[in-house]
């Protein structure tokens, strides 16, 4: 598939996997509407993207906020044109035993990881279906296939995302819109900052590793839909 000149939306674009995918798309000539909650880190992204081929549009958005997301998607369409690549990447984690987790923390995880992905799809899928062209990539996690201690909120949210993805795939595949879910294992992003989890950073995936796999999937022959891709570090801790 020729990427140059296509338009993409990336959520959670200011750091980690979302940031790498944004830069990788821009390098191949894709124009990217990149959103995240942190306006400051989006400005940093803009600096890193200087000189790359694609056009970058940034916006401070909380993906769980329907109005904010809607406004940004509308802006992206106005500035760039129709979107044909959507990367639903924004994710949030609180890792605590159930007995220590607050209701607000559970709600916050669900709001970003489940409601955010659902809203991102609903804001972008109708246009792709109407144009019979597009890919939506959902960044889940291997926690979306396996539970683990301290994961009652996070793991549950990622299991839910798999349900959204599988159902959506059945709804729209016949319109040549692919729903691709990527399940990475532990990845070296800011994600673990401030959490009690401390993976060996040399033996976990990098954001670039995950971004490479996402770009490969987007480039795969259109007749084939890589609906689920599980990746782990080859040499984990």
């Amino acid at each position: 598939m020729e990427f140059k000149g296509k338009n993409a939306l990336v959520t959670g674009a200011s750091s980690g996997i979302g940031r790498e995918i944004t830069l990788a798309l821009l390098r191949t000539g894709v124009n990217v509407a990149a959103c995240a909650r942190s306006q400051y880190r989006l400005e940093e992204l803009r600096e890193s993207a200087a000189g790359l081929e694609g056009t970058l549009v940034i916006g401070g958005v909380d993906v769980s906020d329907e109005d904010q997301l809607h406004a940004f998607v509308e802006k992206a369409r106005m500035v760039l044109g129709p979107l044909s690549i959507v990367i639903a990447n924004a994710g949030f984690g609180v890792f605590k035993p159930l007995m220590e987790m607050k209701t607000e923390e559970f709600d916050q995880v669900m709001a970003t990881n489940v409601r955010g992905v659902w809203l991102t799809a609903r804001e972008t899928v109708p246009e792709m279906v109407a144009r019979e062209e597009g890919d939506i990539v959902i960044i889940s996690s291997l926690a979306g296939k396996n539970g683990f201690a301290t994961g009652t909120a996070y793991s549950a949210s990622k299991f839910a995302v798999r349900g959204i993805a599988q159902s959506l795939m059945h709804e729209i595949r016949q319109h040549n819109v692919r729903v691709i879910t990527v399940f990475p294992g532990s990845t070296d992003t800011r994600f673990f900052d401030g959490t009690p989890m401390s993976p060996n950073r040399e033996k976990i995936l990098t954001s670039e590793d995950v971004s490479d796999v996402v770009l490969q999937a987007l480039h795969s022959p259109r007749r084939a839909l890589p609906s689920e891709i599980d990746i782990r570090p080859a040499n984990p801790k």
């Binding site: 595949r173 490969q216 007749r223 084939a224 609906s227 990746i231 570090p233």
Partner: peptide, 15 residues
Amino acid sequence: TSSRVMIEEISLQPV
């Protein structure tokens, strides 16, 4: 893929 990465599973379906 890079030797750091193991793609463990890919489900591949006709679009």
